[in-house]
Simulated assay, not measured.
Amino acid sequence: MVLLCLVTILGNSLVILAFVMDRNLRHRSNYFFLNLAVSDFAVGVFCMPLYIPYSLTGKWHLGRGICKLWLVMDYLLCTASVFNIVLISYDRFLSVTKAVSYRAQQGITSNPAIKMVAIWILAFLLYCPAILFWELVAGHSVVAADQCYAEFFNNWYFLLCASTLEFFVPLLLVTYFNVHIFHDIQRRQRRGSVQDCEPPRSSSLSWRFCGLPGPGASSPSSEAEDNVPYSMKPKKGSLGAECSSPSRDNSVTPENDYSVSFCAKTRSKLQQDKKIAKSLAIIVCVFAVCWAPYSLLMIIRGACQGTCVHSFLYEGAFWLLWINSSLNPFLYSLCHVKFRMAFLKILCHKKFATLRSGSF
Results as ranks from 00 to 15, higher is better:
L17S: 12
V20C: 03
M21D: 10
N24V: 00
N24T: 06
R28G: 06
N30S: 03
L36P: 05
S39E: 14
F46A: 15
P49V: 01
P53M: 02
P53V: 03
Y54S: 03
T57Y: 06
W60G: 04
I66G: 12
S89E: 08
F93A: 06
L94N: 13
S95W: 14
V96E: 00
K98R: 07
S101P: 05
R103H: 09
I108A: 09
I108D: 13
N111R: 14
I114F: 13
K115H: 08
K115N: 04
I119H: 01
W120L: 07
F124M: 03
L126G: 06
V142D: 07
A145Q: 10
D146Y: 10
N154M: 11
Y157W: 15
L160D: 04
A162N: 11
V174H: 11
Y176R: 03
Y176V: 00
F177D: 07
F177C: 07
D184A: 01
Q189P: 06
R191Q: 15
S193Q: 09
S193L: 07
Q195D: 13
E198H: 15
E198N: 13
R201Y: 08
S204Y: 09
G211M: 05
P215E: 13
A217Y: 06
S219L: 15
E225W: 00
V228L: 09
S231F: 15
S231P: 01
G237I: 12
G237Q: 13
P246E: 03
N250F: 05
T253L: 02
A264G: 11
R267A: 11
R267L: 15
K269R: 14
Q272W: 07
V289E: 15
A292M: 14
P293L: 08
I299N: 04
V309A: 02
H310V: 02
S311K: 04
S311H: 15
F312H: 06
G316D: 12
L321R: 11
S325E: 11
L327E: 06
F330M: 01
S333Y: 14
V337Q: 08
F339P: 00
R340Q: 12
A342D: 02
F343I: 03
K351I: 01
T354L: 15
S357H: 15
